[in-house]
Design a protein around this nucleic acid. Structure first.
Lengths: 209, 209
DNA sequence: TAGATTGTTAATCGATTAACAATC
DNA sequence: TAGATTGTTAATCGATTAACAATC
């Protein structure tokens, strides 16, 4: 792993895409894959894939390609998915519910281990095997369960407030689904999963009527 | 509107962000806003904002800034949100449900007008005021209701199949929430709303433990 | 008029792609 | 050995930012 070189966000975001397809190949018992194969399937330039991977080490074999199992292991290490990462979710609506359903899919790396919501009709109910806690317990549970990532699935007007509480509780990163920009201290990382942007920008590409 | 110049996707994706904040300003009865103000609030470079807008026309006034109401109108035109755009959704799970709840939020521009799911326990149930149809009715309803955008909220293994049916039914664009890459003919536009990429890439930025 | 702010050009920065020696 | 494919450098392409004349 060549440290010192700053890896761009564009590169980091392609790693999960590689990982997902590699897992698929592995399940089909494919041993080896070339950047050519990957590029074809993922709509990416093979040179870009090789360059992305080369930031982190020499994972391939000239003339052969990449060993699928080995590359999976390496990308999991790079993304820190070789350790369990606990996640808390605030907002037990339909979206929050949907995300909890992914727990199975994530295997044992990245796991939603606590759900919060302040609405009286939600507190105490169960989502899968997790009970919904009131926000007053956020700080305590984040500490006790060593939760490192917070997911926000509340309506936009409440998102900043929830973010503040996550910051105070000590999470290291936030994934915000609310369609609004939240401000946090520099040492935290925030990603936005804002589908309204995807949907509205899609409209731009429709044919003129 | 200077046509001929190809507008990059990065520019197009910022337009909904501008629009959202402008709507907020408008609701607070703010008359005018500068690229400076916008940049501060949206974490963007003011020069970039001016350049983005200038691709489409001269919307501002030197020394003053942009008229909020006027700019809202213009961006809505650019994004084609000044006409109603009907949307179909396939996959009546929690995620599909969550998206249907946004209908109110979208006012009358972009509207989910039909929901589909092939699971017997779903067909015929109601989501808000929409009844869930079987997939066999997709083509007919897309035509009858002039649906132009398809949203996919089914599990990954079914996503490509649903996409094919959308293509056949004649939608112009697809928003795919399934964590897999779908292939469609070139004349269609596909956007991916894949939160697993956001979540996994977030892990990369956690502190080494 | 003086201050503010646009629209736009030029400069910079960064990301993608092509090309190819090295080598399995 | 011949063919395939990597890792990496150099070339290209595109996006962001700085700077500033124009002007409200």
């Amino acid at each position: 792993m060549k440290s010192s070189v700053k890896i761009s966000d564009a590169v980091v975001r392609r790693l999960p895409v590689y990982l997902r397809f590699l897992n698929e190949l592995n399940m089909r018992n494919v041993q080896t894959v070339s950047s050519q194969d990957l590029g074809l399937k993922l709509d990416l330039n093979p040179a870009q894939i090789r360059k992305d991977l080369a930031y982190f080490g020499e994972f391939g074999k000239k003339g052969i390609g990449y060993d699928v199992k080995y590359l999976i292991e390496k990308i999991r290490q790079i993304l820190k998915l070789d350790q369990q990462i606990n996640v808390a979710l605030v907002g037990a609506g339909n979206l929050g519910h949907a995300l909890c359903n992914y727990n199975a899919y994530f295997k044992d790396n990245m796991k939603i281990t606590a759900v919060f919501d302040n609405h009286p009709s939600k507190v105490g109910t169960m989502i899968n095997n997790l009970s919904v806690h009131p926000m007053s317990e956020l700080a305590r549970i984040v500490q006790e369960e060593q939760i490192r990532i917070g997911i926000i699935t509340v309506p936009a007007p409440e998102a900043q407030h929830v973010a503040n509480q996550f910051v105070e509780a000590g999470v290291e990163a936030i994934l915000n689904f609310a369609p609004t920009i939240i401000k946090v201290p520099n040492e935290l990382r925030v990603h936005h999963a804002d589908f309204t942007i995807e949907l509205f920008s899609l409209a731009y590409y429709l044919e003129e009527k």
